[in-house]
Nucleic acid binder design. Structure first.
Lengths: 199, 199
DNA sequence: TTCGTTGCAATGCGATCGCATCGCAACACT
DNA sequence: AGTGTTGCGATGCGATCGCATTGCAACGAA
């Protein structure tokens, strides 16, 4: 290639990715606060402190806006989990314990992510949204299964799945019903100790 | 009392409760299909096959409409659980097993109820809605705790709570993510066998 | 400088929203 | 029969929705 543009004029450019991120964050703030119903092009623009024209410029429509925001939320949560998991290190069991604990919703951003997750889950079935929502679950499930298997579980698939589902139920209770976090954490720890006792 | 109305004319009367029920059912059908976002006075009227004026006549506003529908859904679910539980009878453990199994969402109406439940849970915090959503949970929790205590659990509160939360997580996975019901049922049964083995 | 493209604010449009209002038929009373 | 109340269909209003259109300032290439 001679150049990245052939004889065309290249006018001023903004950081496309950063702008989209700012707007998406505004969407997430709104969704975390009052579900997806409170999201409109205008409310998003107001929340982000920008004009509605800008929102329209960076997203083709409301659907893409919501989908991008969901993907962003999910990705950030995965990153946060990954970071905490690798930071603490330790055995697979320790890593699993860290991940599940993170999923309980202690961190405010995780709480928001869970709320956002739940809000999207109750919407009309969208293939792409579904894919985003369940992305990464397989890896955690596989880890849980391998941990309980290593701990000598007679039915690792079932027990690993149970750990995940228990965590899911607990996080919903904490985030959506305001259940006490310490009880959830105690409950999760007890289950983990039972299904995969420290050797 | 001479009469139930003093000198006032009593015009034609409709079955107030039944009409409200019909309309509320239309709301529930809509919510189960596409979340609370698809609910409008007009869409409800269309779903119920009645005029919008009628909807307005029986409900003072959208909020009351949604709240009544939620209460109705919740109450029907409680009734269904109660019925199945008393029908099967047996020990407390059997009753608990029946209740939790019912909560997994095999019955279509239960699936809808779970979807409706989830849809409302992600909305703005409303004191009354919150109260309706969590109504009855205490009884089931108390039952679960008593069952695991009778089974000799060292920490009945935690274990009973864990059973409920596991059930909650499983039902969400089944209803909202389309997870296989039989796996969920197997998982729940395994947990129950572990925490409260058949004597 | 000129020109062409992009970034984005502003505005308008048709649809839909929740809700208020009005009007009238149906019926229970006197 | 007359009368008043209720059930409820019909219609209109202002607000808000997603989206399309327009206009222009800013800036890079020629």
């Amino acid at each position: 290639m001679r150049s990245h543009c052939y004889g065309a004029a290249m006018p001023r450019s903004a950081d496309h990715t950063a702008r989209r991120a700012e707007i998406a964050d505004a969407v997430l703030a709104l969704v975390a606060r009052a579900g997806t119903e409170g999201v409109s092009l205008r409310s998003v623009a107001a929340e982000a402190g920008v004009s509605m024209g800008r929102v329209q410029h960076y997203f083709t429509g409301k659907d893409e806006l919501l989908l991008h925001a969901l993907a962003r939320s999910h990705q950030r949560m995965e990153t946060r989990i990954e970071t905490r998991a690798t930071a603490t290190g330790g055995t697979d069991r320790d890593v699993l314990a860290t991940i599940l604990d993170e999923l309980l919703g202690e961190h405010p951003e995780t709480r928001d992510a869970i709320r956002i997750h739940a809000a999207f889950a109750t919407r009309e079935v969208d293939e792409r949204a579904r894919a985003i929502l369940t992305d990464g679950d397989d890896e955690i499930l596989a880890l849980a299964v391998s941990v309980v298997r290593a701990a000598g579980s007679p039915d690792p698939d079932t027990d690993g799945y149970a750990l995940m589902m228990l965590t899911s139920g607990l996080s919903h209770d904490v985030v959506l019903h305001g259940a006490p976090l310490d009880r959830a954490r105690r409950t999760l720890r007890a289950a983990l100790d039972r299904l995969a006792p420290v050797s």
